[in-house]
């Protein structure tokens, strides 16, 4: 077993190490750039490529959106948001659960509904939401 492991280790050539390191750098940089997100302030609801509505995240409200296949229910609950029902077969969008931060997104491809949290541009300490 140990021998086999050693063999597969030898399979990795010097150039592969270079590729692996580049890949790791890419992971770190993309995470840092794309996940450096403040708490969200607003929710945008898209149907295909059309912005349907923008809601403040600081409320409790349920919205029903008609998509391609049927009605998707979106629940905003004081700073977080999730899909609570959807006509898509695999329910990935519902399983994704709550999202809270700016730039976080839930996509339901079958029903062509997506939601995205956006943060406020901060030139101030607080806002009278």
């Amino acid at each position: 077993m140990k021998k086999k492991l050693l063999q597969s280790y030898k399979l990795i050539k010097i150039g592969d190490w270079f590729t692996i390191i580049l890949f790791c750098l890419l992971i770190i940089i993309s995470t840092k750039l794309l996940w450096n997100m403040p708490q969200g302030e607003y929710l945008e609801i898209y149907k295909n490529n059309e912005l349907l509505a923008t809601y403040s995240l600081n409320q409790k409200i349920t919205k029903e959106i008609k998509g391609k296949k049927g009605k998707t229910k979106i629940v905003i609950d004081n700073g977080r948001v999730r899909f609570s029902s959807s006509p898509c077969p695999k329910k990935y969008c519902i399983h994704q659960g709550w999202i809270t931060k700016a730039n976080q997104t839930i996509i339901c491809i079958p029903n062509e509904i997506s939601i995205s949290i956006i943060g406020a541009k901060k030139g101030y300490d607080t806002i009278n939401y």
């Binding site: 945008e44 923008t54 406020a120 030139g123 101030y124 300490d125 607080t126 806002i127 009278n128």
Partner: peptide
């Protein structure tokens, strides 16, 4: 001083500070 943003009632951003 503390800076407060005034919400634009129809857009997701501040109208003024």
């Amino acid at each position: 001083n503390w800076l407060v943003g005034i919400q634009n009632p129809r857009k997701p951003n501040a109208l003024a500070t």
